Amino acid sequence: MFFASIFFPPPVSLSLNIISVGMVVFAASLGYSEIKGKHMKYSKFWNFNSRSIKSAKKKEINISSKIGMLLFYTPSFFAGLASLWLCPFEGFRFRLLTSALTFHFFKRIFEVLFIHKYSGGMVLDSAIVVSLGYVITTTTMIYIQRLSQREELILDQPTIDLKFVGIILFCLGISGNFYHHYLLSRMRRNGEKEYRIPTGGLFDKVVCPHYLFELIEFWGIFFISQTLYAFCNALGVTFYLMGRSYITRTWYLSKFEHFPKHVKALFPYIF
């Protein structure tokens, strides 16, 4: 059976399997919400509208984007480090997955501190929600990996080993994502806040190549893991970033008269 050749058997816990499927539905709904104009209160779309529409109906605690993004990623980074320290003998695949997740969030923190340039703020409530989402997803993926590998003595293992393909995809994805984040940061000098049409790298093909490489990174994480939860996470991220990239392209088209129409949202020549 194809499923058995690719995946570790799902955990016997019904709640964990429901969470896996629910993650896809939730992420897809977030992507659809972005398309419909309901943005999380941290994106450039929300920041732009919040400057344009000065009608605050309720009191909200605003924080800088830099502080908010550190709040996004730091708990998950320490969760990954703690897992490496607390579970040092869980096998190569487990260490590989946990190291990949930990490095992913380390790289995000590095970019927040040294690469990104900021043009607005965010709402504290949204920062806390996103942070909790990241840390819950990360710890659950690590826990399910540990559980799956402990059950492998009784249950069947995947007959196709994809972890080395996953390493290649992860390295390609995280490198390409970092490179295009760097190109975005080079578009602004210190103190500048206006937006420009991005250029260089794959920006002449898609408006969000950093999202494209992030997808490659998360599919690499799935190949390393080969659990249903990691697959659902990669699928959910795909749906969400498709929505984000679609609205990003729409936003650029509305703000820049000469934005090149041939530049797609996420996948070159396709979408």
Rank of each mutant, 00 (worst) to 15 (best):
F45A: 01
E60F: 01
K44N: 04
S52R: 14
K44H: 10
K41G: 02
W46N: 11
L71F: 11
I53T: 15
K57E: 04
N62K: 09
G68V: 03
Y73R: 02
S50Y: 12
W85E: 10
F45G: 06
S52I: 12
Y42K: 00
A82R: 07
W46R: 00
L84A: 07
S76R: 09
N49L: 10
K54W: 08
E60M: 05
S83I: 06
L84D: 00
K57I: 04
S50V: 05
W85G: 04
L71D: 03
S65T: 00
I53P: 08
I63C: 00
K41C: 07
K41D: 04
G80V: 11
L84F: 11
K58A: 06
S64L: 02
F72N: 00
S55K: 12
F48C: 09
I53H: 11
K44G: 06
I67S: 04
Y42G: 04
K59S: 07
Y73F: 12
S64P: 09
K59T: 02
E60Q: 12
A79L: 11
S83D: 12
Y42H: 03
K41A: 00
G68I: 00
S50I: 01
N47G: 13
N62W: 04
G80I: 13
T74K: 02
P75G: 10
L84H: 08
S83Y: 06
G68M: 01
L71N: 03
P75Y: 11
F72K: 04
S65Q: 12
K44W: 09
R51Q: 15
K59Y: 00
S64R: 04
K58L: 09
F78Y: 15
L71M: 15
A82I: 12
G80C: 12
W46P: 07
K54L: 15
N47T: 10
A82W: 07
I63W: 01
I63S: 01
N47K: 13
S52M: 13
R51E: 14
A82Q: 09
S55L: 12
I61N: 08
Y73D: 03
S64M: 08
I61E: 08
T74A: 14
S50A: 14
K59D: 06
L84S: 06
Y73H: 07
L71R: 00
L71H: 05
K66L: 05
W85Q: 08
L70S: 12
W85I: 15
L81S: 06
